[in-house]
Every structure is written in C-alpha cells, then in structure tokens.
Amino acid sequence: MTLLRRLVGVLLVLAGGAALALGLWFHNFLGPGGMARFSVEPVGSTPIVIEPSVLNRTSLPVTISVTPATGSTASIVVGTPSDAAAALGDTLVDVVGPVSVRDQTAPVTRRGTDADGELASVDVWRTTKTADGPTDISISQASAPETVVISPSAGGKLDSVTLAWTRETWARQTMGLIVGGGGAAVAGLAAALWPRRRREVTR
C-alpha cells in the first residue's frame, strides 16, 4: 500500500506540477482579464488579410489593433468574404493563418501577384477606417462571416497588427489550473514523502 501511495503521490506531483506550470504560463499570457493576444507576423508594406477562418471561429468579438509605421497611414476595411475576394482579385496580400498559442503569433501566408491596389476606395466594404497612429477595430460576430483587410498607404508600412480575443472564463480556468495543479502537487508531495505511520511500523 505504501508503494502504491507513493506512486500515486509521484503521479500527482507530476500532473499537478504540469498543470501549475501550464496555468502560470497561461496566466502570464492571458493576464487577469483573460485576453489572448496574437501578433501578426511578419507585417510590412503588404496588405494584411484576415479571413473568417480566423475571425469567425468563435462567438467572441475580435479586437484588431493596428499601428502604422511613422509617417504611414493604415486603412482598415471590413466586408463579406466574397466581396473582399472580388475586390482583392490577384492583389499581393499576406493572409493571416491559424494562430500559434505557443508563440503568441498569427503567422501569415503570401498570396497574389499584383502589388497595386486601392482597396479602401472600393464600395464593397461594410466599414472603412483610416488611421495615422495606433488604432483598434472590434469585429463582432453579429455580421459574420467577414474579411478584414489592413493596408498601409502607398509607399508606407505597418508597424504591428495584433488580434485579441477576451474571455474572463479563461482567466478563471487559468487560476483553476494554478490552484488545482498546485494543490495536487502539494498533495502528491505529501503522499509521496509522508513518513509511515507508527502502527504500520509496529504491525
């Protein structure tokens, strides 16, 4: 029985420690508000396209933060996927792919060949926004599916583009991992290291 107890204890320490480490990592990533933020990489002079496969996979709103490079202007347009595809045509763009939680990034894939295009002037967009400094736009799921295109002004560049999803439950789940994992590790440690009882010795 002692051996079994110690074995369970070791397993608990391992599982609890892993959960604790995971919880701490996620707490560091999500923060107390439960915000998962992913940096689109790389960004530069090529328009960034965010499609429904990234934007509309959850019921949560997505906050897109855009910072144009100094001296540049960024235009952000939102439209239906088919309209965006028709407006973009073969325009050279960087399409945001699935996010990488481990790297906290949203890698892009290059598509198209035509480097010219005045996207913001086309009347297919539900929303058009331009900014010469850091700006946010929130995409709700009410009008899903949608595509967002972020393009720097001619000759300009984008400094950064981030996507963020916020859910308080994630913060609570993270705390659950920390508390549960920590508790399990302590319990496992106790089970593994606690000395044998006297009656077991005398028996």
Partner: peptide, 21 residues
C-alpha cells in the same frame, strides 16, 4: 482519507486543466 484527498486533487486538475481541448 489521504487517498481520497489525492484523488480529489487529481480530479480537480483534470477538471480545471483538463479542459485543454
């Protein structure tokens, strides 16, 4: 009692952290 506690702790880990899907 200790085994029950350990099992509960493991369950809590699975419940809290096991939602990793």
């Amino acid at each position: 009692k200790r085994r029950a506690l350990a099992t509960a702790a493991l369950a809590s880990v699975l419940l809290a952290g096991g939602c990793g899907i």
